[in-house]
Amino acid sequence: MKGHSPDRAIVPADARGSASVGVTSGTRSGLRGLAGAWRAYRRDRSSLIALVFLLMVAGASLLAPAIAPHDPSDAVTFRHAAPMSEGLVLGADGDGRDVLSRLLWGGRISLMVAVLPTLLALALSLVIGIAAGYFGRWSDHVAMRILDMVFAFPLVLLAIVIASMLSPGILTVTVAIMVALTPYITRLVRTATQSVKGLPFIEAAHAAGAGELAIVTRYVLPNVLAPALVYATTLMGFMMVVGAGLSFLGLGTQPPDADWGVMVADGRAVLRKAPHVTIIPGVMIILVSLSFAFVGDGLRDALDPRRRHR
């Protein structure tokens, strides 16, 4: 473990390397635990700002049909109008479409690609990881050998290959990222499960006559969920970058839909005349991806009882 204030993890590094696991001993009662976690979270200003920003972006994207000034696929003015001209706050792209409206609509896809596959991978990983880590023996061996092979492929390459096997689209990106990500979260869940398994309260539950299923759902899962959720949150930003990358390559979102990766790709053609078409969606990707990292960090501190009271 690194010093007293662990370095703020950078998303891609985490996704490529392994993650450390902080396991809490014992379970906390639901609501009071959540309230305490929220109080702890609130104290870290950067995480709070990141959360507010994320919620604002998500809200604006959800409301895109209502608040977007134009149809994202309609040419509304002459080509590549500069920002703050022609009545368009963020200008127009190479086809004369309103960048702001496209940004709002694209945010729906980009945010979904960040969140949905990661949550699906999280659910899948909890099942595989706990099965391997808790029940152990041959299921553990088999799962770990398979993971070893998957780890031989860089995450991005795996996502690209999977995406290339399916017909391009949002569903493809979701599946590709989910499959590529699952081994990483599974590894963390398995490690966390193994350390929880050795703790005294599991033995106490056994002694009290609790069934295996009850132990897993009531004692193992809550303790494994926290680190896994933190890891998943930290990964969401990176997955947004990966998803945008797939779309940039043409393997993801297809016209007439557009996410922020497609918007960057569209900007290539008019890079010199209208750089804002490329710059704006890229900046959004960076800001949102950073925010996920900050939120994940704040969550980690808030869910860790050892760090909560400082």
């Binding site: 703020r8 950078i10 998303v11 891609p12 590094a13 930003g237 990176f238 970058v241 945008a244 990358g245 940039f248 990766g261 960057v264 900007g267 290539r268 890079l271 010199r272 750089p275 490329t278 710059i279 890229g282 990707i285 960076i286 991806s289 950073l290 990292a293």
Partner: peptide
């Protein structure tokens, strides 16, 4: 480094070209 570390490579490449 925090910002650069989460910058998409394809976007960074385009900015350098620009």
């Amino acid at each position: 480094t925090m910002v650069v570390g989460s910058t998409p490579l394809f976007w960074l490449g385009l900015i350098l070209v620009l």
